[in-house]
Amino acid sequence: MTSVPVAEPPPQEGLGRRLSTFFFRHPRARLWTLLALPLTWLVVVYFGSLFVLLLSSLWDTDPFTRQVVHKFTLENFQRIIDTPVYRDVAWRTIKMAAFVTIADAVLAFPIAYYMARVASPRTRNLLVIAVLMPLWAGYLVKAYAWRTILSEGGVINWALDPIGLHFDGLSTVGLWLVFTYLWLPYMILPVYAGLERIPDSLLEASADLGGRSLKTFTRVILPLAFPAIVAGSIFTFSLTLGDYIAPGLITSEQFIGTVIYNIRGEALPTAAAFSLVPIVVVTAYLLVARKLRAFESL
């Protein structure tokens, strides 16, 4: 015989149950409870510090005591625009960021392509680990290691010496190599993810319609991977713009980061104003990228 199911008695109204019923009936309250902590962090620490940065860039400095005076002025920005040194340093930094980004994109694409579309799953996993591994090591360790490699008695000049060549590693070119090395994983990973998302059938369709490998590459693969390259370039570009340790270790040339570091004691408002330059440049870069429809297929 089958038994007729009997309705269960209503459960006891404990605190936990009342709470979960409350949250069930008020999804908005549930959302805010969930977001309270991260939102506080974001607003207070993240936007707060940006706001303080902006604020202090508008303050003045007492010319005699070098004390910060809480008086609003646009003089700091005027000084950055008018002083050739600041302009040169900003331009040099942007050029460096651009060249690092190009080098990383050129190096990363074939590696990412191999990982995403050629390698067996096992090789692919090994390569992902290999790409991530440098990120586990400390930044300073890697920067100092490169200083040793590039220096007069380093391995590069040791290898070049017998054939009568010499490479001035502790230079802008050396710094370019170091940055390219440091940020390469940040380019490989998004490009790899982007290439992996392209369905095989699109490449088959291109071949089916008569497209040889080169056509398929330029007309299908590259346009579809472009947003991923832009995503990676945002990392390589902005990380280079903001870095102050590697330039100090490798060259005596000044970059935005090193200038801010050097003048922060005596001219904090000017340093704050100068530090807004990378933010403005990256924002402009993102706008251009959006104009190029780089984010459309994300």
Binding site: S201, L202, E204, A205, L224, E296
Partner: peptide
Amino acid sequence: VNTVFQDYALFPHMTVQQNVEYGLMV
């Protein structure tokens, strides 16, 4: 020969017109 794919395999970054013209273009 040409193929109509199960998942259609249309190029997402091209318009309908560009998709149809692709084979002629290459």
